[in-house]
Design a protein around this nucleic acid. Structure first.
Lengths: 199, 199
DNA sequence: GTCTATAGACGGATAGAC
DNA sequence: GTCTATCCGTCTATAGAC
């Protein structure tokens, strides 16, 4: 019996988080309020406290879920059988970047919550933060497949791809102007690494 | 006599904007309130309306001032006699980037106001926006000095350098981890451009 | 030109009835 | 578990006295 209660409670929590994403999409991540959120799931604001301790806890749940989604995307990228990193590193890299950029563009509020600090007075709890560590580790694995494992190289890489995403989303959220530079960016990066190890 | 009045009014406006920067530095850009700001200049909140029409107008003034400061920095970069772009394009580029990154790191609130959208429900007025256009034009001039004038090339460049700044400020606001990649980034970019025009 | 007083709105969170 | 009622705080902006 306890089981049943816990399950329903967990489902309602999921419903609330899903509703929160809908509202974030509609009104903006920062404009999310407990009153609106409660109305979206057919409740009144105080009832939400039966499922979350605070508004920050809701952002935490959204943050953790977002990183689990990213980890899932990265799993498929890592397991992609149509591309062999050893055979064509450039195609491997570019394909992964394109999927990551698509993930970012797919939801601006999600992008903001994961990668920027737009929510005032909130930062992920240690618990929620752990999910992001995992996805970062997957990115390292993915880069290692093309022989990139040096910390400085990875820093250069993160600057490059996060710059592409930031520019694309800031200037042209639904466009492809920076996304279409993915091939050039990947090639440029690999050339630099190659030239480096050669010398 | 009218002149005197206008001058003092203009000075008080400047004082208010300077106080706003101090508070943004102390409490965060988003936490700026009219009460705090008025107190910082020895007034009460309503008195500010004698100098600015709204809080948004104050952000506008800060925004425009920030871009004027950046334009000033870029002027000195462009006029630097110790570096000749034709002679050593890489040194020219890297030096400029380092100065731009130093400008960004010098004030995080200023960086946020200029390059991110952290302030809810505010965007620069067309008037304030004009100042940012000017500084973008200067960046184009500066890149043109090393033969980079194609729009796609410039997009790749902005992604690269804005990524460096974003990563540095997000992960290590006072550090140099990404700043120290400036040389590599500039070299990498120039190599890519060269390889491109060669083929 | 600056003040006091306050309008008017919105927000997170809590108490306690049912 | 959900509700109503409400606390308590925040903020921008305006009205009107001095």
């Amino acid at each position: 019996m306890q089981r049943r209660v816990a399950q329903r409670r967990s489902r309602t929590r999921d419903d609330i988080v899903a509703a929160a994403w809908r509202l974030a999409e509609r009104d903006g991540l920062v404009s999310l309020t407990l009153r609106d959120l409660a109305a979206e799931v057919g409740m009144r604001a105080p009832s939400l406290y039966g499922y979350f301790d605070s508004k920050a806890a809701i952002y935490d749940a959204m943050f953790a879920q977002a990183y689990r989604e990213l980890s899932a995307v990265m799993s498929t990228v890592l397991a992609d059988p149509s591309s062999d990193p050893a055979d064509d590193p450039h195609a491997w890299l570019a394909s992964g970047v394109r999927q990551w950029l698509a993930f970012c563009q797919d939801s601006i509020p999600r992008y903001q919550l994961m990668f920027t600090r737009v929510v005032p007075d909130w930062e992920p709890s240690p618990d929620a933060y752990a999910a992001s560590i995992d996805s970062f580790a997957r990115m390292r694995d993915w880069l290692a497949r093309v022989g990139v494992s040096d910390d400085r190289d990875i820093d250069l890489w993160t600057a490059l791809v996060s710059g592409l995403a930031a520019q694309q989303i800031a200037n042209e959220p639904d466009g492809r102007r920076w996304v279409d530079l993915t091939d050039r960016a990947a090639q440029m990066f690999l050339q630099e690494i190659k030239a480096r190890t050669a010398s």
